[in-house]
């Protein structure tokens, strides 16, 4: 009996409810938002979704370890500008992509080292690096690099799968599939959850906590680099504001996807759905005849509802399940 009850409950996860909600929204749009399902609109949403999700997967890993990174927006802006600077030389995309990833890794590793070595809370440390990244930007360029060559905008303007699907979507798909498996089966991901749950006991269990966290930031940095290059190559001009506010969208996607900010829980699939919901909001309300200025408020409301519902579930869960393991074992 108990076993069966548990099984029915196992698929009624937060991700499941989220998927239902997403489906409802999509059906609602199908009925009420005329013209929403044109190929053009879908592809432009998917493009936005791609660069959001790629970075959100990285953010998800960081948050699982009970850390956070609020410097992502500034980091992405730095990588965008630096990529544009080398892109101006006419280098092709296969060079730009790894270059951006390496830059992302370097900057994000600085974050990771800063946090682990000084034991400063992640939010404070990354707040500091945000200021540094943002402070460096106006020094390096007077604000923007423009008139970039066709080799730079190749990804956005030319690279289309079957002439329709933007290549960024393919990149996102590959990364997502890898992430799904990696976070489910790899030993490394188990360490992340362990650290997020209880850093102290993780250390006692023989996990090198500092090293793992730095590596996590490095991996996330590589993903931020990919996002940066997609954002940067969207047009012929790269400014210092390319990544502004991105970190909030990422954190929101992760939280909406059911990852607890306390760390130790959360799945990639949740982030996949969460990011999609947030990316649909702005174009959707435009097609529904509401001013796009409402989009931030609506996104906020969705996150708030999700967090409140999540909090209730958490309370319920704790009441029902939290029986010390020893008691259960002794019972047997």
């Amino acid at each position: 009996m108990v076993q069966e009850k548990k099984r029915t409950a196992s698929f009624l996860t937060k991700e499941f409810y989220l998927a239902i909600f997403l489906l409802a929204v999509l059906i609602f749009l199908w009925i009420f938002a005329k013209g929403f399902y044109t190929i053009n609109n879908i592809m432009s949403i998917l493009n936005t979704y791609s660069y959001t999700l790629i970075a959100a997967i990285g953010m998800n890993m960081i948050i699982i370890t009970s850390n956070i990174d609020v410097s992502t927006g500034a980091l992405v802006s730095v990588v965008c500008l630096a990529s544009a600077a080398i892109g101006k030389l006419g280098l092709p995309f296969p060079v730009l992509l790894p270059a951006a990833m390496v830059m992302g890794i370097i900057l994000s590793t600085i974050n990771g080292l800063f946090i682990t070595k000084t034991k400063i809370p992640a939010i404070v440390a990354t707040l500091a690096t945000t200021q540094i990244f943002q402070g460096v930007l106006p020094l390096t360029t007077e604000g923007s690099i423009y008139d970039l060559p066709a080799t730079f905008t190749w990804l956005a303007f030319e690279a289309k799968l079957f002439g329709i699907v933007p290549a960024s979507v393919l990149m996102c798909l590959i990364i997502t599939v890898i992430a799904l498996f990696f976070m489910k089966y790899s030993r490394f991901s188990k360490k992340l959850y362990a650290i997020g749950n209880n850093q102290h006991s993780a250390r006692l269990a023989g996990i090198n906590v500092e090293k793992t966290i730095v590596i996590t930031y490095a991996i996330a940095g590589a993903l931020f680099g990919v996002t940066a290059i997609i954002i940067a190559t969207a047009g012929q001009r790269v400014t210092t504001t390319m990544g502004s506010g991105l970190e909030m969208t990422l954190i929101a996607s992760v939280i909406l996807g059911g990852t607890s900010t306390a760390g130790g829980s959360g799945k990639v699939i949740g982030t996949v759905i969460g990011a999609l919901i947030l990316c649909i909001v702005s174009p959707a309300i435009n097609y529904l005849g509401i001013s796009p200025n409402w989009s931030d408020a609506i996104k906020g409301a969705i996150i708030m509802i999700s967090v409140v519902v999540g909090a209730f579930q958490q309370v319920k869960k704790k009441r029902v399940i939290q029986i010390p393991k020893e008691v259960l074992n002794n019972g047997k």
Binding site: N41, S44, N47, G243, S244
Partner: peptide, 21 residues
């Protein structure tokens, strides 16, 4: 009438929506 502000990425995203319309 769109008011995307001065954030480049937001300007791009809203223009993309407009083009698809």
């Amino acid at each position: 009438v769109y008011y995307p502000g001065t954030d480049e990425t937001k300007v791009n995203a809203e223009c993309a929506t407009l083009i698809s319309r």
